[in-house]
Structures are given as structure tokens and as C-alpha cells.
Design a binder for these strands. Structure first.
Lengths: 329, 329
DNA sequence: GTGAAAGCGCTAACAC
DNA sequence: GTGTTAGCGCTTTCAC
């Protein structure tokens, strides 16, 4: 910065003001300084800036995992927006109980990022409190940290829509495949989708016997296994709502191997509109993942620039996508 | 740090030494200091540390995209190792020509990370030179920056293996589906796999007519389209080697829709062992993606800790996975 | 509108 | 083995 100041014939403080867009610099100076800085391909040191009370220009992203369709797509959308605003993205993975507590108690992120974005995992009250102490803006993507801005979909409504689609087709014996997280519990998303399912069933006065609610670890294998369990029931269902497409795809595999005709003997609907859903002709509830990421980016940028967010609760629409795996009964 | 020093009754320099594991502190002191720091849940300011000539404790990761199976899986493996060594991961996306040049000329990463990892994209000589000027350690994952350590597979050998598998099954008319990147060119991986294919064909004295070499944009759609082109050839091939599984899966879709019996009329083999390959019973060449990420992490850690890497060229093995889509002719 | 100067929290000499 | 101290490159009062 000293170099730029010298080249522009001004003091470093003026350069700092110009580069940060602060008032107190004549527009002629400002323009010239920006030009010089560009010629010297100069960029401020994030460390020094942060140390002196400024910004790091980076946002921390908390994900339970980065491989996997949902999280990587959301992060891609987020990254897009952050990049547009010159913000770097620091990736923090929160996997397993210890990694999480370590992260929140150590709070090493305080000195590294200006804000945090939580993607697709529910924070415990303890975790939320520790974050609050750090005093950073926090934004949720596909999760709703209490009192914080978020970008999400209405899982409950989406699940209800999927269920109504099945009941409208004449199905009455409908099962639900629920998923557990790495910690062996049901996440908030699982609860919401389950609630939506139950609500829509109740609307029609349809019963949900215990045997029709199957939980298995999230993923293809879990879905395959859960479906096998359903097929061995005394009276198998005629339709299945899977909490997510990956689970639904696992279920489809079991059905195919069992020679059950999908779309005739058994209807299946998922949730997400995973890239594969189209390929496998799977009916599903589409949610805009990339856009949730982008919207989350908007929220952070707004929080960082204005200190507050005008419209902090962004609920994006889901969309029923009817394909070949769901049909009349 | 001053707080810790006071609480431990020592000078800040001693605390600094203890925390960074440097010599010059009695082990009793060191232990006590670490305990105190832990009690105060203290963590060093990365910014201040960096500014004073230390490390940022972060590694920059350059990916052309983060959604998509390969890159997110490799990043997950890398992240795992970095985390084990207390290193943060800063994600830089390099998409499109301008974004790339901007990144390399601006060099904002200099003040933010201690090293860079390039994942799955080939650097131009210009880019490599700009990186060299920055003076940071650079490591490649699934790419081989000149003169830098890397973790990769032998694409050529893998492709040759896949091709030999087909020729061993009796196929003689074998086509290859090549992919272009977002920039419309063939990447290094594409060239290597093509070379491996040609080599294996030449070994058997088999001809590769021009019509049997089809290029299309990378991805499912590209594969579908390329396969359609092949099917409309005067004499269609009896087997196809697709440069990647995603392309192969696109090809499978076209074959299914055209009622071509896969594994009988037409054999297909891919490359990668994508999660879906198993589901779709696709023969392929498996490459250890997660492990390439982890190995890349090892390389960075070694470069950062010892200044140099003992064994800088890590070529991990590929493995032929024969499934239902490839069969005798 | 602009410049000078005091730190921000650390590391790395350098003394002891 | 330990303490003292001079910066690292910025931002931000505070004078002018």
C-alpha cells in the first residue's frame, strides 16, 4: 500500500480510504488511486486489514460434508455470489460430534472470517450460543438458525405436495422412508418432511401404520434396505414417499431386483430433484439448491454491507415433478 | 496471547514458541502453557500470525468447479488431511478464462494462504509462472504442474487397460467418446486417456477410423449426443470407451432409448467408478479420488513442514471393474 | 480533503 | 530457557 501511495503521490491513509470506498477522498484522487493500484496489480493484505480492525474479506462456510450432491451444489451457488462481491470462501467441515464441539469452542474462525454460513445442518442451542459470543453475522442455508437470516425451502409443504400427489392417484397404503444422519438421529429436514407427509395423509383420513414408517441411514444403501423391509411387510404399501432422491434411488434398486414393477405395482416419489432423478425417471419434489446457495450469499453480503438484512427469511418454492415412477393405482 | 502469557506467568514470546511447537521451551512450561491456553479457549489470530511473518494456517484450493462428483470428492479427501494438521481450506473457483487470469494476476491469495493445491485442471505456462512468482508451495491433484509435487493416476495406462478389456472380449470396431472442457478444448486427462486408447488399439493392429472418435462437451448430455452420433454411423462400432463415467452414462441413456441391447449389441466401458457406475452396472476403470485428495494433503503438509517433499510424484493405481455393460462379441 | 501517527496481535531476532 | 523489543501492513482517530 505504501508503494501505491508513493506512486500516486498521496498518503497511505488516503489510499486506504480510496480502496475501501470510504468518504473523505476527492473523486479525482480516488479514481487515480484505483488506477495506480490496478497497474501495480496491488491487493490489500487480508491479514493486515483484519488486524487493524478491518475486514478479512472472507466468509466461513460450515458443512457437514462437501462431497455429496446437495452440499456441493449449495456451496457452488454461495461461492458464486461471494466471488461477485470479492469475498473468499473458507470451508469448514463439521463431521462428527467432537469435530463440531472443537470448532465451536476453539472459535479459530473469529480471526479468519467476517461471517459464517451454515449449510444443511442444524445447530444445537449450545452451538448457536457459542456463535453468538463470537459476534459474527451468521446465515443459514437449508437450515434456520434461531434469530438469523436464512435461505430455505418449505420442506413440510413440499412433502405434503408429494403425498397429495400419491393420494390423488388413488393410493391409500402409503409408506414413508425416513433417514437418519451420521449421528443416528433425524435432522430438522427429516422431521419437517415427515410432518408434511403425516399432515397430507390425515387430510384424507388415511392411516399411517407403524410398519409403513421406516428409518434407515441416509443414502442409497439405506433406501435399498428400507425398501426391502417394506416389501417383507404383511401387506406391502402401494406407494412410497422417500425423504430424498438418493434414498428413493436405493429403493428403486431393491424394487428392480425384486422384479416389482415401478409405476404399476409400486409408485415411488422422492424429494430434491437430484441430477439422477431425471435419468432414472423418478418423480420428485424439486428444490432449488443452487439458488438457495446464491440467496444465502445475498444474505451474507447484505449483512456485511448494511449490518442488517431487510428480508431475512427467504423461503424458496419447491415444485412437484411428475415422472414415470408415480402412477395411478 | 498476552492473557495466556500473564495467566501462565511467562512472556508472550515463550507462549508463542510453546504454541507453535518451536524449540526453546522447557517441556514443563510448554505443557503448562498449552493447558492454560486451552482453559482460556485461546487460539492464535491467523491474521496477526501471518502479518508477523508466520503462517496463516490455511491452504488455498483451486478448482474449476466444486459441484460435481470428482472435484467435491477430491476436496473432501484433501480437507480431511488438512484438518488433521490444523490447516484451514480456502476455496477458490476458477471458472472461465477471465476468472482465471484475474485470480493469477491479482494474487490476492498471497496474503491469505501458505500453499496452493490445484485440483483437476491444467495450468497454462503463464499461470504456472505467475504462481512461481508468488513463491508459495504448489501441489497438483489429478493434474501435474511442472516441477511441482502431485497426486494423480496413470490415465494412459487406465485407458489402455479398458481398451484391452474390450479387445480381449473380441471387439474390433471400438469407438471412443472424448470430452471437451468448458473452454471447448480437450484437457490433459482427455489427451492421456485418448493416447492410452490409441496405444492399446495399435497393439492389436486395430484401426481407429475418424468416425469412431467423437468429441462432445463433458457430461451426461454430451455423452448422450455423442452416442447418438455413433449410432448413425455407416457401420456403428460394437463397443465404446467413454472418457468418463458421466459421459458413459449419457451414452447408456441414448442406447436404452434406442433399444440397443447394452452388453450384447453394444459394450460400454467408462472411467472413474462414479458412484452411479455400480448402480447402473457400468464397467469402468476405478480411480481412487478421495485418496488422491488425501495424498495431495500429505504433499502440502510435507512441503509446509519440511520445505520439500521426499517423494513428490504420487501415481495411484487404477483398477479395472468389469460389470454388465461390457461383454464378448 | 489530506497527512501523521498510534496501534491491531503476533513472530523472530536479539539480549540475558 | 526465557524475556524484551522491533516491526509485519494495514485502519483509524486526530490534526491540519
Amino acid at each position: 500500500m505504501a508503494d501505491v501511495a508513493e506512486a500516486a503521490g498521496v498518503a497511505v491513509s488516503t489510499v486506504s480510504r480510496a480502496l475501501r470506498g470510504r468518504p473523505g477522498v476527492s473523486s479525482a484522487q480516488r479514481e487515480q488511486i484505483l488506477r495506480v493500484a490496478d497497474e501495480l496489480s496491488y491487493s490489500v493484505s487480508a491479514s493486515a486489514s483484519r488486524l487493524a480492525g478491518g475486514r478479512t474479506g472472507a466468509v466461513g462456510v460450515l458443512v457437514p460434508r462437501i462431497d455429496g450432491w446437495f452440499h456441493s451444489t449449495a456451496v457452488a451457488g454461495l461461492q458464486e455470489r461471494l466471488h461477485e462481491h470479492g469475498l473468499d470462501l473458507v470451508l469448514y467441515r463439521l463431521q462428527g460430534r467432537e469435530e463440531r464441539t472443537g470448532f465451536f469452542t476453539r472459535r479459530a474462525f473469529r480471526h479468519r472470517v467476517d461471517a459464517l454460513v451454515v449449510v444443511g445442518t442444524t445447530l444445537t442451542p449450545d452451538e448457536e450460543e457459542l456463535l453468538a459470543e463470537a459476534g459474527l453475522p451468521v446465515v443459514g442455508i437449508s437450515t434456520r438458525p434461531s434469530g438469523r437470516p436464512f435461505a430455505d425451502v418449505d420442506d413440510r409443504a413440499g412433502a405434503a405436495g408429494a403425498t397429495r400427489h400419491l393420494t390423488n392417484l388413488g393410493h391409500e397404503r402409503i409408506a414413508i422412508l425416513r433417514s437418519t444422519t451420521l449421528l443416528g438421529t433425524h435432522g430438522a429436514v427429516s422431521h419437517d418432511r415427515y410432518a408434511g407427509f403425516c399432515g397430507a395423509m390425515a387430510e384424507r383420513g388415511l392411516d399411517v401404520p407403524e410398519a409403513y414408517v421406516v428409518s434407515a441411514p441416509w443414502g442409497l444403501e439405506g433406501g435399498a434396505q428400507a425398501m426391502a423391509e417394506l416389501l417383507s411387510a404383511a401387506t406391502p404399501p402401494t406407494a412410497v414417499f422417500a425423504e430424498s432422491d438418493e434414498v428413493a434411488i436405493g429403493a428403486l434398486r431393491t424394487l428392480r431386483r425384486s422384479n416389482v414393477e415401478v409405476g404399476r405395482t409400486m409408485s415411488v416419489i422422492g424429494f430434491d430433484d437430484h441430477q439422477l432423478a431425471e435419468l432414472l425417471d423418478l418423480s420428485t419434489v424439486a428444490q432449488p439448491v443452487h439458488e438457495q446457495g446464491r440467496t444465502g450469499g445475498d444474505l451474507v453480503v447484505e449483512a456485511l454491507e448494511h449490518g442488517r438484512v431487510a428480508e431475512p427469511e427467504r423461503v424458496l418454492p419447491t415444485r412437484l415433478v411428475v415422472r414415470g415412477t408415480s402412477a395411478g393405482h
